[in-house]
Design a protein around this nucleic acid. Sequence first.
DNA 1: CGATAGACATTTGTATACAATACCGTCAAG
DNA 2: CTTGACGGTATTGTATACAAATGTCTATCG
Lengths: 227, 227
Amino acid sequence: MEKAASPRASDIAYDKIRQFVLSGRAEPGQQLTEEQLARISGVSRTPVREAVRRLENELLIVRSDSKRLFVADWSADDIDEMFVLRGMLEGHAASRAARNISARQIEELGRISDLLDAAVRCSPPDVTAFLAQNRRFHEIILEAARSPRLSAMLPMLVEQPVVRRTAAQYKTEELLQSAREHRELIAAFTARDSHWARAVMTSHIRRAFHVFSSTAKRHKEQRQAND
Amino acid sequence: MEKAASPRASDIAYDKIRQFVLSGRAEPGQQLTEEQLARISGVSRTPVREAVRRLENELLIVRSDSKRLFVADWSADDIDEMFVLRGMLEGHAASRAARNISARQIEELGRISDLLDAAVRCSPPDVTAFLAQNRRFHEIILEAARSPRLSAMLPMLVEQPVVRRTAAQYKTEELLQSAREHRELIAAFTARDSHWARAVMTSHIRRAFHVFSSTAKRHKEQRQAND
DNA sequence: CGATAGACATTTGTATACAATACCGTCAAG
DNA sequence: CTTGACGGTATTGTATACAAATGTCTATCG
């Protein structure tokens, strides 16, 4: 058991509400009441309020002029900017990680990279596994960057409702390229070259943006065709 | 009356605790208990908890392994990184602001710039007024950037306990240069040149870092001499 | 017909009591 | 002298009741 989840009610509420929002069961823009969220998560309003505060900071939930809660609804500009900021901040994280990462962590990245390759080589590629390992890869880099500020800021930028995520239909070639970039990051870390690491990471995020953005557009056109 | 402060207890608690920490009355690393904070701010523990969550997100307060609260204690590396991140993010904010800022906001920046000049021209220069107007200047740019994410992230990077802030003994020449940079930012905004705005802002923050860092070092040497 | 005031319903905000947990000093055994 | 178990105390976590505020609907007036 890696880390036993504390049975704290506010954590339970946090997880449930987060999942409720990210899974797409909650409509963007929809109003949420504390009591409703309390029912969903099976705890009282007090821990729900704590959870809501956290989700509000991650911008998954927003508050109206006065204090009513709504599921966040992101514009195209919001999404674009998230990728821009991610590029800057994850680039910075990679740069710091190149200086601070331990041998143990580099090995771990290597193992994850093997799993990424495995997920791609399946036919059809196991996208779910790929995304899960990809997330772990980036988490380890964030950890290696040893910056409380980055650790507080990046979570605001990575999460996207599943409706958007699934809009991206990944092609094998794109996944392979992504896996290659992970390998190159490991090379940069091994060489302790912070500039190299930053450049690879920035490029990695920007490429992901364009993959996302083109498949999202394609997805949107298809929906419009159905109307 | 620009914006009437809601008499919400949690806001009161937020302000009071924030001031308590930033004013230096609280020792870095010192433990804080919710009850103590409730006494200080004159409300019950419930709103205190909300306020603490917010301050925790701004990294002014940290939580131990399990849930005890402490005043944040920043290392030199923390401070350095704060300036690096501020450079990136405020640069980005300036870039967006150059695209989105309104004529009305540019005028406002001009007025503030006049006040900055006035604060410097006094003898001795009115550093307090200068810092206050400087803050307002940057707030307007952040507003003009129209990015909820930047608005959520930058507050993590700007605040520093007064003990550190007062360590910087500003020279008139430095204040003048800073005022000049503000004017140049206005020029970049007027020209709607996002690259120019970003460059000036990045340079502005980096210069501030070096001013801060050299005076902090001087300050530290003086303290050591006294021991 | 539109606007507005006022009563009612819904939702958020706060205080308090109590439960669960973590910390710390003491003491006993190795 | 160190180590580890125990119990009291301090601190945080949760539920609930109630207060304040916001939104909404309707009836009345211009």
